Simulated assay, not measured.
Amino acid sequence: MNNLTLFDLDHTLLPLDSDYEWGQFMSRIGAVDPVEFARRNGEFYAQYQAGTLDPVAYLEFAFGTLARFPRSQLDAWHRQFMDEVIRPALKPGALALVQKHLDAGDLVAIITATNRFVTAPIAQEFGVEHLIAAEPEVDEKGDITGAFIGTPPYGAGKVVNIRNWLEARGQSLEGFARSTFYSDSQNDIPLLEAVTHPVATNPNALLGAHAKARGWPILNLFND
Score class of each variant (00 low, 15 high):
D103I: 03
Q171S: 12
R214D: 06
T196S: 15
V32P: 03
L207V: 10
I111A: 02
G105P: 02
L16P: 09
Y154H: 12
I111E: 01
D19I: 14
E60V: 04
E137P: 08
E137M: 11
T112H: 01
H210M: 05
W216N: 05
L191W: 04
P153H: 06
E125H: 10
E167C: 05
D103L: 05
A46F: 10
N223P: 01
R214E: 14
G64V: 12
T112L: 01
T151D: 03
D17S: 14
D188A: 03
I189L: 13
L107S: 05
V98E: 00
A46D: 11
A89Y: 00
S172M: 11
H130D: 11
S172N: 14
L9P: 05
V138T: 14
T65S: 14
K141D: 13
G208F: 03
Q186I: 11
L9D: 05
L90A: 00
D19Q: 11
V159Q: 02
A62K: 00
A57I: 11
D17W: 11
G51A: 08
G208Y: 03
I218E: 05
L13R: 07
P190K: 05
N223G: 13
L90W: 00
A123G: 12
L97A: 01
M82R: 02
K158G: 03
N202H: 07
T145S: 14
I189Y: 01
G42P: 08
V160R: 03
G30C: 13
A62E: 07
I162E: 09
V128Y: 03
A104V: 04
P217Y: 10
D188L: 02
G93S: 10
V199C: 04
S183P: 10
A120E: 13
N41M: 07
A156W: 07
N3Y: 10
L90T: 00
T119G: 07
E36N: 13
Q80K: 11
L6N: 07
V108E: 02
F176R: 10
Q24H: 09
V159F: 04
L16M: 15
M26P: 01
A209V: 10
P203E: 01
L90V: 00
G64E: 12
A209H: 08
N164D: 15
F222H: 11
A76M: 11
L59I: 04
G215E: 07
T196Q: 13
F63V: 05
Y58T: 04
F7C: 11
K100Q: 14
I132S: 09
S185K: 02
A94P: 00
A123D: 09
L97M: 08
R71D: 08
P121T: 13
A147R: 15
A109D: 03
V128L: 09
Q186P: 03
I110W: 01
D75C: 08
T151N: 04
G127Q: 15
P198W: 02
Q73N: 09
L4P: 09
G105D: 07
F81E: 01
L192N: 03
M26D: 01
G157V: 09
E60W: 01
L107I: 08
E129P: 06
E125R: 12
L13E: 08
W216Q: 06
Y58S: 10
R28W: 13
P88H: 03
F181E: 00
L4Q: 09
